[in-house]
């Protein structure tokens, strides 16, 4: 991976509104390349919104998100360059059901292809897409329509679609929610390997706390739209858990 693509993101005093409701309030933290950051919190607390702010889908209503070496996300030029370097695994798998797994993974290259080309994807991109599918154990299903795959398999196609972009920031909104536990362990191991080898920055929202502790370098706990915990994974103990989940 290109070392200049190593990511560092600073979020400062961020507020995000959706449908005129303040979802995130006064959020500040940093994300570094070579680290897995896991965001935890109860449903509806704003985890998905926070990922949306990081990938530029939801604009900040106050505060800033700065990308090291690029500038602030509020600038359209910075936002576009940042978006080209990132990939997101969405909670509602952003796949097109009637296309094959391979065609869906190829959509990861859409930004680099001409919308007018009859065959927009190159042979090399197809080779990379197959390799990404193989990394999630789905190369044999490359030609299967995504709508005919199981929920867990679809989620793995979503992960392959993100990985094929070779991003410097990988965002995942509950990326393992439908994947079986054995494969979650395997994917966590793969993610860690990838992070160590490529200095990729990974930000995941997870509801399985055991998985979160296993994969995370840093845990950020959200409660009522604000950060109530931000520390190294081993520091996320029972008292931190109570702080975040209020139980």
């Amino acid at each position: 991976m290109d070392p200049t693509k190593t990511m560092k993101i600073r979020v400062e005093r961020l507020d995000v509104k959706r449908s005129n409701r303040l979802i995130l309030k006064d959020i500040s933290f940093e994300i570094a390349g070579g680290e897995v950051t896991v965001i935890v919190g109860r449903s509806g607390v704003g985890k998905t919104t926070l990922l949306g702010a990081l990938n530029g889908l939801f604009p900040c209503s106050a505060g800033t998100i700065s990308i090291l070496g690029l500038g602030e996300l509020a600038e359209p030029r910075v936002l576009l360059e940042h978006q080209r370097r990132l990939a997101t695994v969405f909670q509602e798998r952003a796949l097109i059901g009637r296309l094959s797994a391979l065609d869906n993974v190829l959509l990861g290259f859409a930004g680099a292809c001409s919308p007018f080309a009859l065959n927009p994807f190159s042979r090399e991109q197809e080779r990379l897409a197959i390799r990404a599918l193989a990394s999630v154990g789905l190369a044999p299903s490359a030609r299967s329509r995504v709508e005919r795959l199981s929920g867990g398999e679809q989620q793995r196609v979503g992960i392959a679609r993100a990985l094929v972009r070779e991003p410097s920031l990988l965002l995942g909104d509950e990326p393992f929610s439908s994947v079986d536990p054995a494969f979650v362990r395997y994917l966590c191991h793969e993610f860690r390997q990838l992070v160590e080898n490529t200095k990729l920055a990974v930000v995941l929202t997870l509801h399985q706390l055991a998985t979160a502790r296993a994969v995370a370098d840093r845990v950020i706990g959200l409660c009522e739209g604000t950060v109530v915990f931000n520390g190294r994974s081993p520091e996320f103990d029972a008292s931190a858990e109570r702080l975040v989940f209020g139980t």
């Binding site: 978006q83 997101t88 509602e92 796949l95 959509l107 292809c113 919308p115 679609r161 972009r165």
Partner: peptide, 27 residues
């Protein structure tokens, strides 16, 4: 159309024309 694939393309900086070609037309 399903908005998910379009949102994914937009989050990756794909142009409106690209979103129409790669997200809407295949659906």
């Amino acid at each position: 159309v399903e908005p998910g694939p379009l949102q994914a393309l937009r989050s990756e900086g794909v142009s409106s024309l690209g979103v129409a070609r790669f997200g809407i037309l295949p659906q």
